[in-house]
Computed example of a mutant assay.
Amino acid sequence: MSDDGGLGLLLLGPAGATGLYWMLYRYYRNTDKSHAFERETKVEAKPVTGAEQDRKVDEVKGTQSKRIEDDNVHDYRDRVERIRGDSS
């Protein structure tokens, strides 16, 4: 009956792997602590309305240009504004 110890040791491997997998799954997924946004958050929807400022300015049809006029893609120093803190 000394084989019973060996059989228990062999079964401990798959059982330990299953337990480790389940523990890591629960730790990283947090399925019991998930926030159910659809059920727990109420969002009041309002109809979309326009104002006087929302008017059509220009229309471009059938353009073949690959670039937008007056873009600043290559002028990265003009696009990025540095935040300067008070030195006092």
Rank of each mutant, 00 (worst) to 15 (best):
L12C: 09
E38C: 00
I83D: 08
I83H: 08
P47K: 03
R29V: 14
V80K: 09
R79G: 01
D54L: 02
T31K: 11
Q53G: 03
A45R: 14
R26C: 07
L24H: 07
E40P: 00
G62W: 01
D86V: 07
D70I: 02
L20I: 03
K56N: 04
A17C: 06
K42Y: 11
E38L: 05
K46A: 08
D75A: 15
R26K: 15
D70V: 04
H35R: 06
D4G: 01
Q53M: 03
A17S: 05
D86T: 10
E40N: 06
K42H: 13
K61D: 06
D70A: 09
V48K: 08
K66R: 13
T41I: 09
P47Q: 05
L24W: 10
A15S: 14
H74T: 14
K61H: 09
A36C: 06
N30L: 12
L10I: 10
Y21K: 01
D86M: 04
Y27E: 07
T41E: 05
M23W: 14
G13K: 06
V43S: 02
Q64E: 12
A51L: 02
Y25P: 00
V48A: 06
V80H: 08
G13I: 15
L7W: 03
D4H: 05
R39Q: 12
R79M: 10
E52W: 02
D71E: 15
L12I: 08
L20C: 01
G16C: 12
L20A: 08
R39N: 11
M23Q: 07
R26S: 10
K61T: 12
T31L: 11
V48N: 03
A51W: 02
S34M: 10
V57T: 08
L10D: 10
K56L: 14
M1S: 14
E44K: 15
L10F: 13
A17G: 01
R55E: 09
R82G: 02
L10Q: 13
Q53S: 12
Y27I: 05
D58W: 10
R67F: 07
K42S: 06
L9D: 07
E44W: 13
A51D: 11
